[in-house]
């Protein structure tokens, strides 16, 4: 067995493969801020981001606060002939459900509320223990889940949807913009910065049990 263990250790420390074309190559030694691209297909295979956990956590916490503000406040308010109609993100989901379009209601609920929120909670679940040097169960599964959630979190697309709706309604009625819209607009760069600050190779290495 010792020989096999050595071979495994060897493969771990020196080699990696491109996820897009399967080319084998030596793990490059990257300095902070450097990227490595696959020599054959050009895929980004590794990036040493070098941000501290505190930096990522601060961004994630700001994002969470903005997310809550974007969901509890009024997004848009419409005035037509003395009547006012206010809405927030969840009321759109609710109205689709009431109209009988539960499929789109669930879809919108997942990509605009559930996925972004779970994503942020996953980040806290993984990073807080790493920062404070303790262990929580299922940390690897949670981080894996974060990466699965990523393509389904569509806050920036929703923001563009709000702008389109605003322009479409501009001729019809007076629209007042609520606090939620400003919070939502601010959430997008913070969410993007949070994701960009996470170094997944680093985090996976930190999550590996040292046995």
């Amino acid at each position: 067995m010792p020989q096999q263990t050595n071979a495994q250790a060897e493969s771990r420390t020196h080699l990696t493969a491109c996820h897009d074309c399967d080319l084998l190559f030596h793990i490059p030694h990257l300095k902070k801020g450097e990227q490595a691209h696959c020599p054959r297909c050009g895929a980004l295979v590794m990036e040493r981001k070098g941000h501290s956990l505190d930096y990522s956590l601060a961004l994630a916490l700001t994002s969470l606060i903005l997310f809550v503000m974007a969901n509890v406040n009024v997004l848009l308010r419409m005035n037509v002939g003395g009547r006012t109609q206010a809405e927030n993100i969840i009321s759109g989901v609710n109205e689709l459900y009431v109209q009988g379009y539960w499929e789109i209601a669930i879809l919108v609920l997942i990509v605009s509320i559930v996925a972004p929120l779970l994503k942020l909670l996953c980040i806290f679940y993984v990073l807080v223990p790493l920062r404070l040097n303790f262990r929580l169960p299922y940390a690897k599964e949670v981080f894996g889940f974060y990466e699965v959630l990523n393509p389904w979190s569509m806050t920036e697309v929703y923001m563009l949807g709000i702008l389109v709706a605003l322009v479409k309604l501009a001729d019809l009625a007076t629209i007042n913009v609520g606090i939620a819209l400003y919070s939502f607009a601010a959430l997008i760069p913070f969410m993007a910065a949070t994701d960009a600050s996470l170094d997944d190779h680093d985090i996976w290495e930190s999550l590996e049990p040292t046995d």
Partner: peptide
């Protein structure tokens, strides 16, 4: 998303 916003 536009539909979700407009219906509400």
């Amino acid at each position: 998303f536009v539909i979700a916003i407009l219906v509400a």
